[in-house]
Design a protein around this nucleic acid. Structure first.
Lengths: 234, 234
DNA sequence: TTTCATAAATTGGTTTACCAGATTAGAAGT
DNA sequence: ACTTCTAATCTGGTAAACCAATTTATGAAA
């Protein structure tokens, strides 16, 4: 089953159907950016579905920046143009659920950039946060406990200091899926955690000293095991 | 105003407040992964807000993989652990709206990876799609019309063939914001479009011939102007 | 005591009714 | 004809009522 990034349940199918119908309507009526859609009531009547279903479809299109609802006024076609809209909707409907490989591949890409930016832009306050996450991770590992959560919180702490809210948001989006997949495929890596402590410390130091390339290099080494694992799955 | 990735309206403030309260409740009750939250009715009563408000807060937490609602059963703490949950929620609530620089910075990062993957994984069918987007762009430019939409659809066509649904989804998420910012800051770049045609063609050929490094190199050149613009804004 | 069928209660989801702000139509005044 | 003001209408959002599936409680049978 295909499902979007918003992934909820199997009712997604009917949402997609409604999205297609709304799109067709926009094209039929030659609505331009800024134009108002028929009201939710009209749409639900015309498409013979409940208003809530229409609202959910609109929500999804709004999430992807294609529509814009304004409280007591109406729902409008965002000013990205109808060509972009039609193209995007095709791709949105075709979006598949991310598999583990996609997630890891993306995570590594994001984090190698994030650690560079973080080392350039980190404030002193940021360093305190990262250090706290680092200490929490170390304590857990030295206690012999599973520290997957603390591991990823350390990485999120870095993402939070990179000064790029888009990258930060993307990291937050994929982290839970990464964790659950770690558990699913038993990539918890308890045995590697002691090594990981040293690597985390080295990353922290590099960020602290603003050694951009070094920070990136250590992060790359840090991901080596994960990287190999990722490309051995397929 | 701070706002999350889901960015809707100013009522986000109260959603965040509810999210905090729900989190506190989970901690108070020492709920572990897999445990069931109080029902939506109980929560709305206890927190003295409407049930719909509770539902929206839960939806957001579900989007970020922290909670999981099961239809006639209940809402459960996802199995990422309470430590990860608490850390993530702090970061989620602190998320700011992405600025243009964040978007461009992220786009370039994503696309340089995407074009590599696409050149490795593209099918013959993919090539047809990319070529169609390429032709549409060329026609628009040669007609002297603004071709921002067709430009980005070409890039989305590539993203759609990269075999990584996470990266593809992220590209879809930022594209509309990129377009609106282009218009806002007048980065439409009509004068550059003729050059862009050649670059697009070269990218297409490289993907077609599966010349991975070359594809990436051309994409990098293609982004040069945008890159400079991005780092001159601040 | 255990097992299993049955009914009552609980759940998230959905439909319906209602709300307050925004828009529009039209009349009144100039 | 053109404003201006007002009231009726229309809008997305929200609260309340309802639903079907699930879970739990109950108790009879073994």
């Amino acid at each position: 089953m295909k499902v979007g990034v918003l992934s909820k349940n199997d009712n997604e199918e009917i949402h997609n159907k409604i999205i297609v119908q709304i799109t067709e309507l926009i094209n039929l009526k030659n609505l331009e950016p800024g134009d108002k859609l028929p009201s939710e009531r009209m749409l639900s009547e015309k498409l013979e579905v409940s208003r809530s279903a229409v609202r959910e479809a609109i929500n999804k299109l709004e999430f992807y920046g294609i529509l814009k609802s304004i409280p007591q006024s109406g729902t409008f076609v965002a000013d990205i143009g109808v060509t972009a809209m039609n193209g995007m909707i095709d791709y949105i409907l075709g979006l598949e659920d991310p598999d583990f490989k996609s997630l890891v591949e993306t995570r590594i890409l994001l984090e190698l950039k994030i650690v560079k930016l973080a080392s350039l832009r980190r404030t002193d306050e940021d360093l305190v946060n990262i250090k706290a996450a680092l200490d929490a991770f170390e304590e857990k590992v030295l206690n012999g406990e599973n520290a997957v959560q603390e591991d990823l919180l350390f990485h999120l702490a870095i993402a939070n200091t990179c000064g790029n809210s888009t990258l930060n948001g993307f990291m937050l989006k994929i982290t839970p899926e990464i964790i659950t997949n770690f558990k699913k495929y038993h990539v918890c890596g308890d045995e590697l955690s002691v090594v990981a402590i040293q690597e985390h410390k080295a990353i922290y130091e590099a960020i602290k000293n603003q050694e951009t390339q070094k920070a990136r290099q250590i992060m790359k080494v840090h991901f080596k095991t994960l990287y190999q694992y990722c490309y051995n799955i397929e």
